[in-house]
């Protein structure tokens, strides 16, 4: 197990595995998301209170979940890189940031569009759930800005990993904001006390898995790019690129 882990952490080995794995993640994710979207839009019954506006849940919850998931991947791999000095893990952290920012933006937008007809407001300044998710977006921006502002890759890795670790606090706040403070946002449905009919819940789980797989395939591609750039002067990259067929 340990040996396997070390092997995977070696950039050329990871690169090869990722090339094989990424398309499978992408294709299976696409199939699940297509099925879940069809279910969510046309098959699932409408909600007894919200009517058809409830269908927004099938894109809002997966993007909100990924916005936090991506951050945790970014922060933990940054920490692993800081502590054990594994080169690959900093590449993972750098690759996760833009995707996480994208899904955070998506979660904010879909939440706002959903809130307008249901809650009666696009946005509430001071609402803990909304504010902490907005801070999450700024954390991603800050992280990417910090990275691009430091030319030395090693220094950029360290500084950004510390920033990401500190920002974990905000992810915890996003998660518990609906319990700790009075927010317009309702509590947890998916993994907690909330109830949801099985024919509504199952498509949501399918969407969550599908989004995660799509995220995985996008993440792997960006990690490959990051690894390629960081290892651009090594022999394996040179051999791979100059070999017939390359390794895109």
């Amino acid at each position: 197990m340990w040996k396997w882990f070390h092997q995977l952490a070696s950039p050329p080995h990871f690169y090869r595995i990722s090339l094989i794995l990424a398309p499978w993640l992408g294709i299976s994710g696409l199939i699940l998301v297509a099925y879940g979207t069809w279910q969510g839009l046309f098959v699932v019954p409408m909600d007894y209170q919200q009517g058809d506006a409830f269908r927004i849940i099938y894109v809002h919850v997966p993007s909100a979940y990924l916005s936090m998931m991506a951050y945790m991947i970014m922060a933990t791999s940054g920490a692993i890189g800081l502590i054990w000095r594994i080169k690959l893990s900093h590449a993972v952290a750098a690759a996760a940031a833009p995707i996480g920012a994208g899904f955070t933006f998506l979660a904010l937008c879909t939440g706002s569009i959903w809130g307008r007809p249901m809650w009666g407001t696009w946005w509430e300044w001071g609402d803990p759930r909304m504010m902490s998710e907005l801070i999450l977006l700024f954390l991603y921006f800050g992280y990417m800005a910090l990275r691009s502002s430091i030319d030395d890759t090693t220094k950029a890795d360290k500084a950004s990993a510390v920033l990401a670790l500190v920002g974990i606090v905000n992810v915890v706040i996003v998660h518990f904001s609906v319990e700790w403070w009075s927010s317009l946002h309702q509590g947890q449905t998916v993994f907690k006390k909330g109830t949801m009919d099985a024919d509504m819940r199952i498509p949501l789980f399918i969407m969550l898995i599908g989004f995660t797989l799509l995220f995985g395939s996008m993440l792997l591609r960006r990690i490959r790019t990051e690894v390629l750039y960081r290892e651009r002067r090594t022999r394996w990259v040179r051999e791979m690129i100059l070999s017939p067929g390359g390794g895109a």
């Binding site: 979207t37 058809d52 506006a53 927004i56 937008c109 569009i113 307008r116």
Partner: peptide, 14 residues
């Protein structure tokens, strides 16, 4: 979408 078409479709589109 029972009057919510603009909201639902714009979310999925986005």
């Amino acid at each position: 979408m029972g009057g919510y078409g603009a909201y639902v479709w714009s979310c999925y589109g986005l």
